[in-house]
Write a protein that binds this DNA or RNA. Structure first.
Length: 287
DNA sequence: GACTCATCGTTCACTGGAAT
DNA sequence: ATTCCAGTGAACGATGAGTC
């Protein structure tokens, strides 16, 4: 059962039909073969990611070429649409070939699995760079006073770095996804946040961590790739700071871009990131 | 004590309002 | 008209809070 839950279905693309508009393709319909190892059924509305045949054969890292959505189910095949947001559709479609595969997560385990793999990869990376690493507990046990608002604590000597681990934006992997759930005022177990004010936005607050670590897996296919940025506003530090949410000046914008390879304010190097924290603290304490 | 209901934090995939 | 992007709901398990 565990293997079945973890193994994605791969449906080979047998036919792609593109309808052209004035400025390139408008839409694309596909027919894909349902392989014999599929033991559940598909339903119109099921979505997945198209990956290259080379990836399935082990020659390329994971990369989402385009999204696919099943619209009709027949005996041994499914019919559906290939889609992306308009800005990326044309280029993405030109990369898809017959024989590529529509990959479907049959029981929806991907999100939590990805999160766990990223955490494990970050843990080993940080250890490799010589940090003491602690994965922080979930913020659930208020009665034992262990609430934290970051994911990892890195230590070198007496110096502590609080790290919040995040992912790329699934629908646009050129951008980070700095977001958390809003805590509502009153009632909830986290409503009395001691000296902290209650978050009233889904954007992350600068002061809750020292570093953001964004997993680049969704873009590079390598689980050990991260981009790091100081959790500091760009009016505090022009090169290393991140943009503020206009209406919430204590919070960081949710979708700052990250170039490939990462450049300021991002860095792919954890040691460089920790040096920036040191430098920023020195600068901040001097003023 | 048994029970019901609400909440957190993570992902993906989307909406809707604002800005350009 | 188009682009940008903050905000939302689904699932999960652990937990707090309230009711009977």
């Amino acid at each position: 059962m565990l293997v079945r839950v973890l193994t994605p279905y791969r449906l080979k693309l047998l036919k792609i039909e593109v309808t052209d508009g004035r400025r390139g393709p408008r839409a694309a319909i596909f027919i894909a073969e349902v392989p014999s190892d599929v033991w559940t059924t598909f339903e119109p509305g099921t979505t997945g990611k198209v990956v290259s045949r080379a990836h399935v054969e082990g020659a390329e890292p994971f990369r989402e070429l385009i999204k696919g959505r099943i619209l009709r189910c027949g005996p041994g095949f499914v019919e559906g649409e290939l889609y992306f947001d308009r800005a990326r559709f044309s280029v993405a479609l030109s990369e898809v070939r017959l024989g590529d595969f529509l990959e479907i997560d049959p029981f929806g385990v991907t999100s939590k699995m990805e999160s766990a793999l990223c955490e494990a990869a970050f843990f080993t990376e940080a250890q490799r760079f010589g940090f003491g690493v602690t994965r922080m507990p979930e913020n659930v046990a208020k009665h034992v006073g262990t609430q934290n608002y970051h994911d990892f604590r890195l230590e070198r000597g007496q110096i502590v770095y609080r790290v919040e681990l995040k992912s790329l934006w699934g629908t646009d992997t050129t951008k980070a996804r700095l977001i958390h759930t809003v805590s509502r005022s009153g009632g909830g177990k986290n409503s009395a946040r001691d000296d902290r004010q209650i978050w009233n936005t889904s954007s992350c607050r600068f002061q809750d961590q020292d570093l953001f670590a964004v997993s680049l897996w969704l873009r590079t296919g390598r689980i050990t790739d991260f981009a790091y940025a100081l959790s500091v506003a760009n009016d505090q530090h022009a090169e290393w700071g991140l943009p503020k949410v206009p209406r919430h000046p204590d919070h960081v914008t949710q979708n700052p871009p990250i170039s490939q390879p990462p450049t300021d304010p991002w860095t792919p190097d954890l040691l460089e990131a920790s040096r920036r924290v040191d430098a920023w603290r020195k600068l901040r304490d001097a003023t």
